[in-house]
Design a protein around this nucleic acid. Structure first.
Length: 494
RNA sequence: GUCCCCAUCGUCUAGCCCGGCCUAGGACACCGCCCUUUCACGGCGAUAACGCGGGUUCGAAUCCCGCUGGGGACGCCA
C-alpha cells in the first residue's frame, strides 16, 4: 500500500488496509437488498484497493440449508463481481466459544439460567426489557454451581449500566450516533446449546479477520451500539461503520418473499433476461448517486465514482406492481447497457436464448440478426419474439388485412406483392441492391414507398412492426422471401 | 410500549452540511411533437415535488423546535 508523506500517523499497512465483508446467512435465496449490500462492499473494496471477504454467517444450525447456500452462490456468481477471501462461521465455533468465555472471565458476561420458553414478566413489546430478573446479579459461586449441576443457560453480555453511559460512533453514512446503555439490553453471546449468536460470532470474526469497515443494512444501525460494547469487552478496536438505507416495496414495507414474491430474488432478474452489469448499475442507483448526471455506468465507472458520501439516508422504493414486476428504470438501464454492447458480444448472449426458444440459431445467423434487433429489445428475453421470423420455417399466422397498404386495398396488395416477387427473384440481395430495386419498382407501379414496403414487410415478417426492411430481407434470404410472398399473395387473394 | 433512523415530482434522485445563483435541476414512466418505409433508437416539449405548523433571518427546500407520516431495532434469527 502506498505511504505518502501527508499521512502523519505511522505508516502501518494493516491499519490502512481496507477489508470489508459481506456476511449472508444461508436461510433463503439472495435477496436484492443483500445483493446491493454486497455490491457496495465490493465497490468500496475495489475503490480503496482493499480486500473483499465473503463470510457465511451460519451460526443458526437449525435454519441453514445447503440449498440456500447454493442459491446465494448462484446469485453472487451471476453478479460476476467475485471476492478475495472466504470464511464460514460454522468452521470457526471454537474461536467464538473461547472468546465468549474470556468475556465472561472479565465479568462482561454472565450466565442466564432463565428457561428458554419462560414468558418474560414484562414482554419486550411493552418496552424496557433489559435483562431477566435476578440473573445479572447471580454470584459467581452460585452461577458455577448451577452450571456444574447441568442446568442450561445462555451466556449474556453485561451491558455496563453502573453508571449508565453513552455509546457513540460516527457512521460514514448516518453521521454521529449515540445511545444510552440504559436503552441497550443484555444480549446473548452463547445459546444454551453452546453455539454462538449472530452478534457474538460477527464481532469476534470482524476482529479476527481485521475488518476495517462494516458496510451493512440500516436494520443493523441500532445493533451497532451492542457491537461496539462487545468490541470493547473483546479488547478490539471498533471498525468503521457505514449503514445503507433499506430497499422497500411500493407499499412502504420491507421487501419480503412472503409478501412480495419473486421480485425480491436476484435470480428473478437473471431469468428475466437482465445483464448482470445493468442490474448492478440499477441497484447502485437505489440509495447512491455519483453526484453528477450519470445514470448508465459500467462497473469500472461505478468503482471509480463510489464513496459513502454519495449514499442517501432515506429508504428507496423498488418500483414494481403485480402486473409488471420489473422496475421500469431497471429495464431502461438494461436496455442502455444492451445498446452499448458490441454486436459480437450481444450475439454470444443471444444465441443460447434463441436456442432455448427452439430456434435453429447458428452463430452466423445469430450474428447477422443481432444488429437488427439490438435496439428493439429491453431484455435478452425479448429477443425471440422480436426475431422469430428470422428463424421460423413457417411464419406464425397473421391476418390478411395486415397486408393491405395505407390508402390501398387488397388489389393493390396483390399487385405490389406480385411485382416485388419478380424484382426479388433477380435483385442483388444486399441492402443497397434491394433498396434500389424496390424503390424503382414503387415508382413503376405508381405507389408510395410505404405502400410498396409495408406489404412486403408483413409478408416476410408476418407482422407490421419489424426491423428495417432491406437488411431484414437480406438476412432472411431470397428463397424464404419468395416463398413467403407467394403465401401472402395467396392469403390476400382469397 | 422503549430506543434509533428517515422525510424534494408516481418512482430513483440533485440541491441541504457552508441559507440568497431554486420562478427547485436530471432520469425513468406517462402524454404530445420531430426524425422515419413500420417498429425501435434518437431529438424536442408538456404534466408533475420541497409533508404540516411554528420559529431564526432582510431572505429557508436549505438552520432550530414541535407535529404528522414512514421505516428499523428491541430473540437462545441474522
Amino acid at each position: 500500500m502506498r505511504c505518502t508523506a501527508s499521512i502523519h500517523r505511522a505508516c502501518d499497512t494493516e491499519r490502512f488496509m481496507v477489508r470489508v465483508r459481506f456476511a449472508p446467512s444461508p436461510t433463503g435465496y439472495l435477496h436484492i437488498g443483500s445483493a446491493r449490500t454486497f455490491i457496495f462492499n465490493w465497490l468500496f473494496a475495489r475503490r480503496q484497493q482493499g480486500t473483499m471477504i465473503l463470510r457465511i454467517d451460519d451460526t443458526d444450525v437449525e435454519r441453514n440449508t445447503q440449498a440456500s447456500l447454493d442459491s446465494i452462490y448462484d446469485g453472487l456468481n451471476w453478479l460476476g463481481l467475485g471476492w478475495d477471501e472466504f470464511y464460514r462461521q460454522s468452521d470457526r465455533f471454537d474461536l467464538y466459544t473461547k472468546a465468549a468465555w474470556e468475556v465472561f472471565e472479565k465479568d462482561h458476561a454472565y450466565r442466564d439460567f432463565t428457561p428458554m420458553n419462560a414468558a418474560p414478566e414484562e414482554p419486550a413489546s411493552q418496552g424496557g426489557w433489559l435483562c431477566n430478573a435476578g440473573m445479572r446479579e447471580l454470584s459467581r459461586e452460585e452461577s458455577d454451581r448451577r452450571a456444574a449441576a447441568g442446568e442450561p443457560f445462555v451466556l449474556r453480555f453485561r451491558v455496563p449500566r453502573d453508571p449508565v453511559r453513552e455509546v457513540a460512533f460516527k457512521d460514514l453514512v448516518y453521521g454521529e450516533q449515540s445511545k444510552s446503555t440504559a436503552d441497550i439490553e443484555d444480549f446473548a453471546l452463547l445459546r444454551s446449546s453452546g453455539a454462538p449468536t449472530y452478534h457474538h460470532a460477527s464481532c469476534v470474526d470482524d476482529f479476527d479477520l481485521k475488518i476495517s469497515h462494516i458496510v451493512r443494512g440500516q436494520d443493523h444501525l441500532s445493533n451497532t451500539f451492542k457491537h461496539i460494547l462487545l468490541f470493547e469487552a473483546l479488547g478490539a478496536p471498533a471498525p468503521e461503520f457505514a449503514h445503507l438505507p433499506l430497499l422497500i416495496a411500493p407499499d412502504g414495507a420491507k421487501l419480503s418473499k412472503r409478501k412480495h414474491g419473486p421480485v425480491v430474488a436476484v435470480m428473478t432478474y437473471r431469468d428475466a433476461g437482465f445483464l448482470p452489469q445493468a442490474y448492478v448499475n440499477f441497484l447502485c442507483l437505489l440509495g447512491w448517486n455519483p453526484k453528477d448526471d450519470r445514470e448508465k455506468m459500467s462497473i469500472e465507472e461505478l468503482t471509480a465514482a463510489f464513496s459513502f458520501e454519495g449514499v442517501n439516508r432515506s429508504n428507496a422504493v423498488v418500483n414494481f406492481t403485480e402486473e409488471d414486476p420489473i422496475d421500469p428504470k431497471a429495464q431502461w438501464l438494461n436496455s442502455q447497457h444492451l445498446y452499448a454492447m458490441s454486436h459480437d458480444e450481444l450475439a454470444a448472449l443471444l444465441q443460447p436464448v434463441f436456442e432455448k426458444a427452439g430456434y435453429a440459431a447458428s452463430a452466423e445467423k445469430t450474428r447477422a440478426v443481432t444488429p437488427l434487433i439490438q435496439e428493439r429489445i429491453k431484455t435478452l428475453n425479448d429477443a425471440p419474439a422480436v426475431a422469430d421470423f428470422f428463424f421460423l420455417d413457417q411464419l406464425v399466422p397473421y391476418d390478411a388485412a395486415e397486408l393491405i397498404p395505407q390508402k390501398g386495398d387488397a388489389e393493390m396488395a396483390v399487385k405490389v406483392l406480385r411485382h416485388a416477387r419478380g424484382v426479388l427473384e433477380t435483385a442483388e440481395f444486399t441492402h443497397a441492391g434491394l433498396e434500389g430495386a424496390l424503390r424503382t419498382a414503387a415508382t413503376e407501379l405508381g405507389v408510395k414507398a410505404g405502400q410498396m414496403f409495408q406489404p412486403i414487410r408483413v409478408a416476410v415478417c408476418g407482422r407490421k412492426n419489424a426491423p428495417p426492411l432491406f437488411e431484414t430481407l437480406e438476412v432472411v434470404g431470397r428463397e424464404a422471401c419468395l416463398k413467403r410472398i407467394d403465401q401472402a399473395v395467396e392469403l390476400v387473394g382469397r
